[in-house]
């Protein structure tokens, strides 16, 4: 089985500090890391490969600038078999739609059975790219995977985290799952793995020319991106909310309307 994990290199937000004067993020000197949800996906893929022990492989795919090479080397040093960097100036400025278009094109070129992406990246926080890739490829998907219960050559059973419950879902292969960081605790790179990552293994770069047959060039890069960023802001932590048990429908309506009025929403 060919397991492909899509990863993104992101700034380590635990190391990001705010500029007290401008209130913006200071990105200079901030180390780059593999997005945590994606790293859990790498670990899950490696565990599946080890469990299957049938010649299955783990392939890592990332779209990004040439500097993203080090993120792919890290994945190789953890034990992945091969890595592809989708990188081209024409890919720059892509929003989630254009990004997923390019990554889906890369996956068509590289081949896949099971695709794993992280749930969302800690820098953009959209959680859109994984599901969009599945749509471009027209394969089934499960997002928010917390556990892979079983995998064989034609189906996978996944435990999905939902707001108030779990779903146990079976999907045919090929398919895509997006992983939560709870999916697996990533291993460290090993010393020998790091030497392999820069020695016997390589990061293959695919650019516009390599992929142009696989996508509509009008739908990639800045020009192909339908999204415009109007404003970006730091998320405010919300409270837990209030829960009312054992209320009738009429009472519930009254409580909601009262709350909305209290806050001058209606």
């Amino acid at each position: 089985m060919k397991i492909v994990v899509c990863v993104k290199q992101v700034p380590d937000t635990t190391e990001v500090k705010l500029d007290p004067k401008t209130n913006t993020l200071i990105r200079d000197g901030v180390p780059s890391i593999i997005n945590p949800d994606d790293k859990a996906g790498i670990e899950a893929a490696l565990q599946l490969k080890e469990k299957l022990n049938d010649g299955s492989t783990v392939t890592i795919v990332s779209m990004g600038p040439p500097q993203a090479d080090v993120a792919l080397r890290e994945a190789l040093a953890m034990g992945a078999d091969e890595a592809y960097l989708l990188s081209d100036r024409q890919f720059g400025g892509s929003d989630t739609y254009a990004t997923s278009t390019i990554i889906a094109a890369g996956l068509k070129k590289i081949g896949y059975d099971l695709v794993i992406t992280g749930r969302q990246a800690i820098d953009g926080d959209t959680a859109q790219v994984g599901p969009q890739i599945a749509e471009h490829l027209a394969i089934p998907q499960v997002s928010y995977a917390e556990e892979i219960i079983s995998l064989d050559k034609d189906k996978i059973v996944v435990k999905r985290q939902f707001e108030d419950r779990y779903h146990i879902l079976e999907l045919p292969i090929p398919c895509l799952i997006t992983s939560l960081s709870e999916l697996a605790e990533p291993r460290y790179m090993s010393v020998g793995g790091i030497y392999d990552a820069y020695g016997v293994k390589e990061v293959k770069v695919l650019g516009f020319e390599d992929l142009k047959e696989m996508f509509d060039p009008a739908r990639i890069g800045l020009k192909g991106s339908p999204t415009n960023v109007v404003k970006s802001f730091t998320k405010q932590a919300k409270g837990a909310g209030t829960k009312y048990d054992d209320v009738s429908a009429d009472e519930a309506v009254k409580i909601i309307v009262d709350k909305l009025e209290e806050r001058h929403i209606i």
């Binding site: 080397r73 890290e74 460290y188």
Partner: peptide
């Protein structure tokens, strides 16, 4: 070297 930089990062985390 690139290997040594990545090794150092791994050693530190470990």
């Amino acid at each position: 070297s690139k290997e040594q930089q990545l090794l150092q990062e791994m050693y530190r985390k470990f």
